[in-house]
């Protein structure tokens, strides 16, 4: 793995993208024993507005706590794509929600699309798991942590009653994410 790998999750406040970042950082730092740092920036609104969460994963100590050149970025809404889909490295990847981002950001990176919110609603039956689908898709596409570590971190974070629902969401996101690269 590269010395420093940077992932940014962005979307609307309340979509659970800060949680997605926390889960990824736990998978890396606690389960896989790497260095990981999760940070976020958000506006004063409790819901709505563009929000982002960044995770830096490294084999060594992490000094600067914010993203420098993003390896992989997720944008769940048009506002998030406009505001946060920048600073992506040459050859990096950008995953967009197919239904909610119409205007693609321009840059020297590869754009992939998945109907994440629709998958959550129609395939899993609960919009609330969209963040887990998105997280799993990003793990499937980047391999930044193992599938097992990612799933374990999700299970540790959710109440037992929602374990299966989230495992189902994770499996779906991981599979669809991986399939995008083929």
């Amino acid at each position: 793995m590269a010395e420093r790998y940077e992932i940014r999750f962005s979307g609307a406040g309340g979509q659970g993208l800060i949680t997605a970042g926390i889960i990824l950082a736990e998978a890396a730092a606690i389960i896989e024993g790497k260095s990981a740092l999760q940070s976020q920036s958000y506006g004063p609104e409790a819901r709505g507005g563009a929000s982002k969460s960044e995770v830096i994963i490294s084999d060594g100590p992490i000094d600067y706590p914010k993203a420098t050149i993003v390896d992989a970025c997720l944008a769940m809404t048009q506002e998030a794509a406009d505001k946060y889909a920048n600073g992506i490295k040459k050859g990096g990847l950008l995953l967009l929600d197919d239904d909610f981002v119409k205007t693609e950001p321009e840059g020297d990176f590869t754009i992939y699309r998945l109907p994440i919110m629709r998958m959550a609603k129609e395939d899993i039956g609960r919009e609330i798991v969209a963040n887990v689908i998105a997280l799993a898709a990003v793990i499937g596409m980047t391999g930044v942590v193992s599938k097992e570590a990612g799933e374990e971190a999700v299970v540790r974070r959710v109440p037992p009653a929602f374990k299966e629902l989230n495992q189902k969401a994770f499996a779906l996101g991981y599979e669809k994410g991986k399939a995008l690269l083929n």
């Binding site: 926390i22 730092a29 740092l37 999760q38 940070s39 976020q40 992490i62």
Partner: peptide, 9 residues
């Protein structure tokens, strides 16, 4: 705020 809100091990 950065160190207060960020997460590390």
């Amino acid at each position: 705020e950065i160190v207060g809100h960020m997460r590390e091990r």
